[in-house]
Simulated assay, not measured.
Amino acid sequence: MSASSLFIGLMSGTSLDGVDGVLAHIDAGDIRTLGAAYLPFSDGLRADLMALQQPGENEIHREALAANALALRYAQCVGDLLVSTGRTAADIRAIGAHGQTIRHRPELGYTRQTGNPALLAELAGIDVVADFRSRDIAGGGQGAPLVPAFHQAVFSDPGECRVVANIGGISNISVLDPKGPVTGFDTGPGNLLMDGWIARHLGNAYDAAGAWAASGQEIPALLQRLCEEPYLGLPPPKSTGRDLFHLEWLDARLAGLSAARPEDVQATLAAFTALTLARDIAHHAASAKRVFVCGGGACNTHLMQRLQQRLHECGQTATVQSTDALGVSPNHVEGLAFAWLAYRQVNRLPGNLASVTGAAGARVLGALYPA
């Protein structure tokens, strides 16, 4: 197996929990996971990255320090991958590092994924590809979601319309219909609001298996308010993030509902994620027979059940299951996607889909930082 076929993908998403790393063999249509690693963020790094989601004092300096700390964490993840798979830096063609999104404003012509890819290249001794979203935005696109192109390469089937639902901090769908172009967009919050709400009330980073949400009752009035968010009614292409959805956004919609039990709010937030996904799947992928879920949401048993229920309520008969059914762990999909995007960049192949992002056409994504 030549070094030109080995790539590492690193992803730290909107949930701000840590970094997922995947070592993959990628050669034309052959894409195989060889190893995976996960490193949680320290409380300090997570707090620093969370603070950068909003404007603040001396934020250029604070971002630079957080970017260095993130590069160190990325390098540790790369080291763990090499040790666990018996590889060396010389075996790896390139690392695809997404970075941590702290601003995403494609309507203003920019996106910002913090990180220090030059430092990562120095520490790892491996070429690094980073800043994947900017080229698509320069071409008039949303710069997100980028994973539908990878979903098409790995999960599509010529005889079946499928949906891949990535439920991270934000949820997005990829509609893989052999009868037409791939489409996809951010449907709205995934785990982001649920994670923030349980952290505020119980001090937990996330709602394990959705147990807390399952202990509550949905609040119809709150669910209606949440569903009135204008973003949800916009046509694709569209993308979103913490710039729009955050706890202050939720607090504004809780006004007048102060007697609501925290667990009932959590149940409603799970319902909100499930309902927004189900409505968009029913509208944009009516012929889909199966929905494959990846990201942290695939581990939320309550959310998966609610998604199935909401799909049926929307008249959609598709069954819901994780991407394990297709041979890829739901926790590895995004890391594998950025390994694939690094492969595309070093081979001067486009990584976006204009039908998804709205860009003027196919573009080679990412900037290369040689080791």
Score class of each variant (00 low, 15 high):
Leu16Arg: 05
Phe150Ser: 02
Gln308Cys: 14
Leu254Ser: 00
Leu341Gln: 08
Gln53Tyr: 02
Ala67Ser: 14
Met304Gln: 14
Leu82Pro: 09
Met1Asp: 10
Leu176Gly: 03
Trp197Cys: 03
Ser156Arg: 04
Gln217Lys: 14
Gly351Ala: 11
Ile173Thr: 10
Leu269Trp: 11
Thr268Cys: 06
Cys77Ala: 11
Gly9Leu: 06
Ser355His: 02
Thr33Phe: 02
Phe338Met: 12
Ser171Leu: 11
Asn172Thr: 08
Ala199Lys: 08
Ala270Cys: 15
Asn191Glu: 13
Asp207Tyr: 01
Pro178Gln: 08
Asp207Ile: 00
Asp264Glu: 08
Gly125Leu: 06
Tyr110Gly: 09
Arg103Phe: 01
Leu176Tyr: 03
Leu349Phe: 05
Gln53Ile: 02
Ala94Pro: 00
Gln142Glu: 15
Ile170Pro: 01
Val328Trp: 09
Ala149Ser: 10
Thr111Leu: 10
Thr88Ala: 07
Asp27Asn: 11
Tyr74Met: 01
Asp157Leu: 06
Tyr206Arg: 04
Phe185Val: 06
Phe155Glu: 06
Pro330Gly: 10
Asp264Gln: 08
Lys179Leu: 15
Asp324Trp: 15
Ala71Asp: 03
His312Phe: 03
Ala124His: 05
Asp264Lys: 01
Ala75His: 00
Thr317Gly: 13
Ala282Tyr: 09
Glu59Gly: 01
Ala267Leu: 11
Arg279Leu: 10
Ala360His: 14
Arg200Leu: 08
Leu192Ser: 05
Ser239Cys: 13
Ile31Ala: 03
Asn204Ala: 14
Gly233Val: 07
Ser174Met: 07
Asn191Ile: 02
Tyr38Ser: 13
Gly233Cys: 12
Leu349Arg: 12
Ala124Leu: 05
Asp177Phe: 01
Gln113Met: 02
Arg133Cys: 07
Gln152Val: 01
Leu326Phe: 15
Gly141Asp: 10
Pro55Ser: 08
Glu63Met: 02
Gln345Ala: 14
Ala259Gly: 10
Val364Gly: 08
Ile102Val: 11
Ala28Trp: 06
Val346Tyr: 00
Leu269Val: 12
Val182Leu: 04
Lys179Ala: 15
Ile95Asp: 01
Leu16Val: 10
Asn300Pro: 10
Ala259Asp: 15
Leu81Pro: 11
Ala362Cys: 03
Thr240Ser: 14
Ile60Val: 13
Thr111Asp: 12
Phe7Gln: 02
Gly56Asp: 09
Ala130Pro: 07
Leu341Asn: 07
Ala337Thr: 12
Tyr369Trp: 09
Ala214Arg: 11
Gly295Glu: 09
Ser84Asn: 13
Pro236Asp: 03
Arg310Lys: 15
Leu39Val: 13
Ser2Ile: 06
Asn68Ser: 09
Met194Leu: 14
